[in-house]
Design a protein around this nucleic acid. Sequence first.
DNA 1: GTGACAGCTCGTCAGGCACC
DNA 2: GGTGCCTGACGAGCTGTCAC
Length: 110
Amino acid sequence: MAVTGDETESAATGDMPACHIRSSSSGLPKSMVMAASPGEIHSPQQQAEEATRKREVRLMKNRQAARECRRKKKEYVKCLENRVAVLENQNKTLIEELKALKDIYCHKPE
DNA sequence: GTGACAGCTCGTCAGGCACC
DNA sequence: GGTGCCTGACGAGCTGTCAC
């Protein structure tokens, strides 16, 4: 069986697979992460630069988050497709089994 | 060759949710 | 409340296919 219990559970609840590990670091360049403290900002130009920098950091983080989100979604869909294949096989086996049992029962001498 | 179309990927925005 | 993360929705750009 290729589908684990956890996957079965998450599929039943509609959640993503449990194999996802959340990374603590953002993966951003240090130059983007290091910010001047608010106390150091005085001029309107510095404030504008700070706002621009913050926006760039936010966009970069969101870009990475979107990539990760899509990767997880693909993985989830793959899990579901595997599960469908497994269940279809099980179904086929059970139908064959039922057919065989019916055969035996119908031809049983009285 | 090329224009139309469908399908896919990516970046961005907006809203919900959890945590503090 | 403020902040950060996650994800659905949307638009833009790219690519493959098909009819002409």
